[in-house]
């Protein structure tokens, strides 16, 4: 009898969970579906979920009418470039704090975190003027620099928490065998910490891909990543729902897939270890 009862409550909870999560997911599903409709069907007052003539014309038109791949490429360069550059700077720092701890390590970590809390408008004007003077406005290089600096504290923190889980005896053993610090990091630490490093990279690619303050302010036509490209749909002419959906779908699907792989890292990275 008790099995019966627990099955019944499982059924109710399952129903509730599926209903609520479908509602939360619905705007994304609706975007994906609309991207395969014609413009007339997209604004129809009796909208249909599946029963319509599926078409790829919106994708063709978005690709034909706008330099979509340029923006896509910009997004890739900016998010991947800043994440890799960030790793190169953050790994030595995280190694240093995790394995050669001093009294100041904790304060240093907290200070790095505090830079993340600086609101972007606090440095908006100087950054804009400096970028203008150095010719970095609307360049991928400029955005790679900004994204690296914005995400550096998160990278150092995430790597630090991963490195702390590695017993320092492993590193000491290699030192006894006469390995230099460089060799120690490259051949001992990196292979062990590879999953942690990969997670850090993944989360930072996602964060940089979706960043929408600096990308909107510092780019125009040339270096605009997808965030800025999609923003250009905010003042459209004529029928555009299906095309907006197609462009949006192409911008979010790659990162949705990456994101689903990085659920656990998300918690660790964004809560700075406050929740494990």
């Amino acid at each position: 009898m008790s099995i019966n009862k627990s099955n019944k409550s499982k059924l109710i909870y399952t129903f509730l969970a599926w209903t609520i999560s479908s509602l939360i997911f619905f705007p994304i599903l609706w975007t994906l579906i609309t991207s395969f409709k014609t413009e007339a069907e997209a604004i129809s007052s009796s909208p249909s979920l599946f029963m319509f003539d599926w078409t790829l014309e919106n994708y063709e038109e978005v690709l034909a009418r706008s330099p979509y791949f340029n923006h896509f490429w910009n997004s890739i360069v900016i998010s991947l470039g800043s994440s890799i550059l960030g790793l190169l700077i953050a790994i030595p720092a995280a190694w240093s704090m995790a394995f050669v701890q001093t009294k100041r390590t904790k304060n240093l970590l907290m200070w790095m975190l505090s830079t993340k809390m600086l609101p972007p408008v606090g440095v908006l004007i100087p950054i804009y003027l400096l970028f203008r003077n150095f010719g970095l406005l609307d360049t991928k290089l400029g955005l790679v620099i900004v994204m690296t600096l914005i995400n550096l504290p998160i990278m150092v923190w995430m790597l630090y928490t991963y490195f702390r889980e590695i017993p320092s005896e492993v590193l000491e053993a290699s030192r006894m065998d006469g390995a230099s610090i460089g060799e120690e990091i490259l051949y001992v630490l990196l292979p062990i910490a590879l999953p942690g490093i990969a997670s850090t990279l993944l989360l930072n690619v996602i964060l940089a891909w979706n960043e929408a303050f600096w990308t909107l302010i510092l780019t125009a036509a040339d270096a605009a990543p997808l965030t800025a490209f999609i923003a250009s749909y905010s003042s459209p002419e004529g029928l555009f729902y299906a095309k907006l959906s197609a462009a949006s779908a192409m911008a979010i699907v790659p990162i949705l897939i990456l994101g689903w792989f990085s659920q656990k890292q998300l918690v660790r990275g964004l809560s700075f270890g406050a929740v494990k």
Binding site: I20, S21, S22, I24, F25, P27, I28, W30, T31, I206, W209, N210, A212, L216, L226, T227, A228, I230, A231, Y233, S234, L244, S245, S248, A251, I252, I255, L256, L258, G259, W260, Q263, L266
Partner: peptide
């Protein structure tokens, strides 16, 4: 997966959709 999805949608897309 469904619940988590909106977090990975870039702000400009979610706002315009």
């Amino acid at each position: 997966i469904m619940v988590l999805a909106p977090f990975f949608v870039m702000p400009t897309v979610s706002a315009l959709v």
